[in-house]
């Protein structure tokens, strides 16, 4: 994870140094004298060679310092973590909507494959993944806030404000999740062990939820994790549409102002949350599928086989008896 982080910092650094524009001009305005500009650049360390700036940044980073925002003169870390809970909440809500709607429709679609329900939900899901979320967001604003006046169109100050943004992003995610759930379930329903479960006299509901779903869970969880990670970073546009004061909003403003430390810090936090989510998903795999778990507990297994080896004669006769 640490190499990933360093790589992310490097890439962002290179991209920002290659991008046109001068933060000093941006901050002082067009009336500033060349001397003032030069002084500010020196202050900000922008005149240092690229490598020196990079090493300095990483060094500060390792000490937990993300730098100071050019515009507000506040520590970047503080600015980001003030907004982090908003983005986290937004993403979580959207993911919950995506998971519930996506998994439910995916299951029903798979169980009732090629029926009208399946066909309709597949078409809707296809539309869902094709539609850009900002367009859907604007449509929702037109229908539900402007037209019907049910929900406020912007801001993020309470449950009422949460509904439209979460639905917008959540439904787009649900389309992905639904497609993945459907195909994973279709893979599983044809398996022999599902027939075994039916042959035991198990009810159809139980067969679906306790035999089929757990086996289809790995691809579903993978997609959900990716959606969540993408939500942490990629809700930039939706946050703009709904004027949600989250990290995405912070970063768009920072990019406009050439506020380098904030952009870097934002990207870093997004990359970090993405990595953490991926790690959590990987750990989750082991709980979903015991076969994956046994891959990781290799050491323990070796010890166990040794024990078995000692007792083998007794065991062997028991196994054959």
């Amino acid at each position: 994870m640490i190499p990933v982080m360093l790589g992310v910092v490097l890439v962002i650094f290179v991209m920002l140094s290659l991008s046109p524009g001068d933060p000093a001009v941006q901050m002082l305005g067009p009336d500033a004298t060349p001397e003032q500009l030069e002084e500010l650049r020196d202050d900000l360390g922008l005149n240092d060679p690229f490598l020196v700036r990079y090493v300095k940044y990483v060094w500060n980073l390792l000490h937990g310092d993300l730098g100071t925002s050019y515009t507000t003169k506040q520590p970047v870390a503080k600015e980001i973590f003030e907004r982090f809970p908003t983005t986290l909440l937004f993403t979580t809500l959207a993911c919950i909507v995506g998971a519930i709607v996506g998994i439910l429709f995916g299951i029903v679609s798979a169980v009732k494959q090629y029926t009208w329900f399946d066909n309709v939900s597949r078409v809707i899901a296809l539309i869902g993944i094709s539609v850009p979320s900002f367009w859907l967001g604007l449509m929702f604003i037109i229908w539900f806030s402007v037209g019907l006046g049910w929900f406020p169109s912007s801001g993020f100050y309470g449950p009422k404000y949460w509904v439209l943004p979460s639905l917008t992003v959540g439904l787009v995610q649900a389309s992905n999740v639904m497609r993945q759930t459907r195909s994973a379930m279709l893979d599983v329903v044809r398996q022999d062990y599902i027939r075994t479960a039916r042959a035991k006299g198990q009810s159809e509901m139980k067969v679906i939820f306790s035999h089929e779903l757990p086996n289809a869970l790995i691809p579903i969880v993978t997609v959900l994790g990716m959606q969540f990670g993408r939500g942490m970073g990629g809700s930039i546009i939706s946050e703009q549409v709904f004027a949600i004061p989250g990290i995405g909003m912070l970063m768009t403003n920072a990019i406009g102002n050439l506020n380098y430390p904030v952009v870097q810090g934002g990207v870093l936090v997004i990359a970090l949350s993405f990595s953490i989510v991926n790690l959590l998903i990987d750990i989750l795999y082991a709980f979903i599928d015991p076969r994956i778990k046994s891959l990781y507990s290799g050491k323990k297994r070796v010890r166990k086989t040794k024990n078995e080896f000692v007792r083998e004669p007794g065991k062997e006769s028991a196994a054959n008896g």
Binding site: Q191, D192, R195, A199, G201, Q202, H211, I288, D289, P290
Partner: peptide, 20 residues
């Protein structure tokens, strides 16, 4: 099913649920 008539399936490798 399973109580009074039960069935042993052809392929033991795939007849058991891998996550249970």
């Amino acid at each position: 099913r399973g109580g009074r008539i039960s069935m042993i399936f052809q392929d033991p490798m795939t007849s058991l649920n891998p996550v249970k």
